[in-house]
Design a binder for these strands. Structure first.
Lengths: 316, 316
DNA sequence: GCTATAAATGCTCAAAGTGAGTATTATAGT
DNA sequence: ACTATAATACTCACTTTGAGCATTTATAGC
C-alpha cells in the first residue's frame, strides 16, 4: 500500500478563479393542529434562505444561523435535500449554487419574528391533500386538462405516452394514488402549463399559491422526501410534542401523507415496532374515552440503525 | 420548459462578495466479472473530480465533462450523493464546496485513458465483503480493537454506549450484519483510530487502501447509497450487459451487497416483479444446464414510478 | 454411452406480516 | 340514562417471506 502525506498542501484542484455564490435554502416543517406547515418569509412567497459565507463553520450551521435570524425559530432534525446550480440565478452572470435542506421542528407558537410566517403546505399544493378523498379538482380540472395536454402531441404514440405518464403520477385510470410523487406531479403540471413557477400576470389554471424563483419546486422536493421517509424512519416524532396520544400521532402522519390511515392497523404497527412507551398520563380533552399519552422511545434510535433488508438472503 | 423571468432582476440575495470554489466528485461504479469496481485516478488514490465552472451548463453536465476527460468513460445513470463544505479544502483560506455524485455504467474495457483505473471497491473496504462469510478480520482485529476502544471510555455508561454502537454497526454480539451501514462503519473505525483518512506515516491497523483527502468517505457514501437503492429501484440493470442470465444478475447484486442470496427466492422475486423478459437466447458458457438470457423490461421504468407504500391505508 | 458436475428450474410448507373488519369499553355532555 | 366520541381488543382471510427438497438439462471427462 503506497504511503502518502496529507492533502492540505497539495489540493486536488486549484479552485476556479472567480468563485461562485452559494445559497442555503430551508424547507422547515412543523405540524400545527392537524395541518402540515412550512416556515415562509416575504409574505409567504419564499422559503427561508441566505448566502453561505466563509464565516460559516459548515453548511448546516450556516443554514441554522440564517433560519434563526430570519424566523426566530430553531431547527431540530435536519437533512440535506438537494443541490442545484442555476446560471440565471447568480448576480452579474456569476453562476450560483443552491443547497436545500429539510428541517423538522415542533411549533412553539412564539411571536413570529420579522416577516416570517407558518403556512399550511397545502396552500401551495392543494391537489396533494387526499384526506377527504380525491379532491373535486381532479375531475373538474386536473384530469381534463392533462388529457388535453396529452392530446396536443402530434403522434399517436406520444399522446399515449403523455397520458400514461399523467395517469401514473396522478393516479388516474386504473393507477393508484401515490403520495410520494409530489415533485413529479409538480413538474408535470408545470410542463403542461397548469401552474407557473413564478407568477407573472397570467392566472394559473390550478389553485395554489406560487413562490419566488424555484422555491415551490424545492418545497415539493421536501414534501416528497418527508412522505417517503416517515415510512421507514421514526422522523414523525421530531414533529410531535413530548407526550401525545396515538390518535394525535396518526393525525400527524395523515397530515404529512395527505391520506387517511386504518386506525387499528396503525396502532398495531406502532406497538409491534416498539416505537413508543406509556407516560402513565391520559388526555381527557377530546370528549370520549380518555387517550393514553405516550412518548417516543429514544432507545430505538440506537437499537435500530436502519431499515430492514429486502434482499432474499442466504442462511446465516 | 420555460425559463423564469422573475429572479434575474430581483435576486433573493446579493451573492457574497468573494465567492467560493465548488468541486464535483464522482463515484463511478461498474461491475466487472463478479466484483464491484469504481473508477479512480492518481494511482487509484482519488476519485475523478474537478472544479465546477461557470462554463458548465449544470452540475451534472459539468461532472460528465470532467469524468469523460479524466477517464475517457461516459456515465449512464447518475444521481446526486451529498454536498459538503470544508473550510480547510479551499485555496487561500477560501472555503470550498464539494458536490458528489453516484454514477453507474457498464464497463466496456476500453483502453484506460490517462492515469484512470478501475479498482475493486473492496480494496478500500475489505471488511465490507461478506460473501464468503464474515471475514476473519472481524474476529482477529475488528471486534477486539473496537472492544478496546470502547473500554477506553471513563464512565461505565460511555463504555456500554460505545460497545453497543460498535456492535450494531458491525453486527457483533446478537446484532445482525447490515450491509447498508457502510458510512457509519467507516466513521466509527475512523473515530476509533483503526483507519486514517489520508495516511501520513503511521500504519493503519486495518488493511484497506486509503485515498486522498476525504475521497474514501465519499466512496463509502456512494456504496451505502447503492446498497440501499438496489432494494427498491431497478438500478442494477444499469450495470448489466444488454443480455444476461439470472445467475449473472444475482452475482452482480451479491457483489454490490457483499452478501450471498438465496437463488430460488431471488428468481421468484425478479419474476414476480416482471423486471425482465426472455431474449430467446441461451448461454452455454458455464458448463451446466444452459442459462436463458434475459433483458431488462424498460417498460417497468414507466409503469412503476416508485416503491410501494408501507402505511396502513384506509379503504379506497 | 456412462458418470460426475454445474446450473437452471419447479414445488412445498410453515411463519410472519397485512388488510379489512366487528366488538367492547371508557369518558364527557345533555 | 342516553348519546357521541374515542380508545382498545380481537378475528380472519390472504399475501409475502424464508428455507429447503427435488427434478431437469446441459457439458466434460472417461
Amino acid at each position: 500500500m503506497a504511503l502518502m502525506t496529507m492533502e492540505t498542501k497539495d489540493p486536488l484542484h486549484i479552485p476556479a478563479g472567480r468563485g461562485i455564490a452559494a445559497e442555503l435554502i430551508a424547507v422547515l416543517v412543523a405540524v400545527i393542529g392537524e395541518a402540515p406547515h412550512i416556515m415562509t418569509i416575504r409574505d409567504a412567497r419564499a422559503l427561508p434562505s441566505g448566502p453561505f459565507e466563509s464565516s460559516h463553520r459548515s453548511l448546516q450551521s450556516g443554514l441554522r444561523e440564517w433560519v434563526e435570524q430570519q424566523t426566530g425559530h430553531p431547527i431540530g432534525y435536519m437533512e440535506q435535500l438537494y443541490t442545484f446550480a442555476d446560471r440565471d440565478r447568480g448576480h452579474e452572470g456569476k453562476s450560483a449554487i443552491s443547497i436545500s435542506y429539510l428541517g423538522l421542528t415542533r411549533e412553539e407558537s412564539r411571536a413570529d419574528a420579522r416577516d416570517s410566517e407558518w403556512r399550511d403546505w397545502y396552500d401551495y399544493f392543494p391537489w396533494e391533500d387526499h384526506r377527504k378523498g380525491t379532491p373535486e379538482l381532479f375531475e373538474a380540472v386536473v384530469a381534463p386538462r392533462l388529457k388535453q395536454w396529452a392530446d396536443e402531441s402530434t403522434s399517436k404514440a406520444a399522446r399515449a405516452d403523455r397520458w400514461q405518464r399523467a395517469a401514473i403520477t396522478f393516479g388516474l385510470d386504473e393507477f393508484a394514488w401515490n403520495e410520494e410523487l409530489v415533485l413529479q406531479r409538480y413538474e408535470l403540471l408545470y410542463e403542461a402549463g397548469l401552474v407557473t413557477e413564478a407568477e407573472r400576470g397570467q392566472k394559473p389554471v390550478l389553485p395554489g399559491r406560487a413562490m419566488l424563483a424555484d422555491h415551490r419546486r424545492i418545497l415539493a422536493t421536501g414534501i416528497a422526501r418527508l412522505r417517503a421517509k416517515i415510512k421507514y424512519r421514526p422522523v414523525v416524532f421530531e414533529l410531535m410534542p413530548p407526550a401525545f396520544s396515538l390518535l394525535q400521532l396518526q393525525r400527524s402522519v395523515e397530515a404529512l401523507a395527505g391520506r387517511l390511515l386504518h386506525k387499528q392497523n396503525f396502532r398495531r404497527l406502532i406497538e409491534q415496532q416498539e416505537l413508543v412507551e406509556e407516560t402513565g398520563l391520559s388526555s381527557f380533552e377530546t370528549g370520549g374515552r380518555p387517550a393514553k399519552l405516550f412518548r417516543f422511545r429514544q432507545a430505538v434510535l440506537a437499537e435500530r440503525a436502519a431499515a430492514g433488508t429486502k434482499l432474499p438472503l442466504l442462511r446465516p
